[in-house]
Amino acid sequence: MVWEELRFQALLRHADDRLVLGHRLSEWCGHGPTLEEDIALSNVALDLLGQAKVIFEQSIKTDLKKRSVDDLIYFREIRGYRNVILVEQPNGDFACTILRQYFFDVFNRLWLNSLQSSIDKDLSSFARSALKEAIYHERHTKSWVVRLGDGTKESNERIQEAVSVFYPLSYEFFAQDEIDQKVFSKGLLPNTACFENVWKEEVALTLLEATLQFPKRTSTQMLRGREGRHTEHLDRILSEMQSLARAHPGASW
């Protein structure tokens, strides 16, 4: 793979994570448990979509096929999507959404923190501003994880269930292949292996504070979103998200 393509593919992964997760969160708009939280979730969704936008814009600079951001979002097939499996999971109840988000927020904060020292000036300055958003996201979701975990019996059971479903999926944040390793070694993107343990320790402390049990570690064999091997959930997201744009090919909006 030539460097341009490597760079494009590596950035696409992180843009897709944010696009898909932002899309999922936007499904809450108008349906939150309170007006306050409805607004809070939309804020996070807007931040993630904004982050996705910047990363997509950076990625297409080296797209050999010269696609636009909207081409990538609206006209790419499911096999071309490179997000982790975790972010395409359905929202479920508020506990599921919050827990999935918390796992991502910790990862995002660590990733952006490290991206600040990218050799690419545009990426490092993006990281500095996005990091501020990520710090708040984590503060928000972490306090909900603790509230729900240490709240009522019902809320504890709901978020415990979310932990057992989502924790195993979180390993994919740290899975690495040849593409990742090449962009790490060039100093373009962070080496996620460097903060895998930090992620685990911080999450463990939060779960402890939230009186939640840790699930057993499982195999990461089947987590292959980075290769474009997704669950049916992403298919449903894309058929909805792309429906209008695809019904009018060539139209501008």
């Binding site: 696009l19 899309h23 936007s26 499904e27 708009c29 939309s42 969704a45 807007l46 979509l49 904004g50 996705a52 936008k53 997509f56 951001v69 909207d70 979002i73 609206y74 997201i237 909805e240 998200m241 429906s243 209008l244 744009a245 009018h248 139209a251 909006w253």
Partner: peptide, 15 residues
Amino acid sequence: ITRAPSLRRKISLLA
């Protein structure tokens, strides 16, 4: 919101 036909429209409509 989930069907907005461009990223720009999606962000504006959500906001």
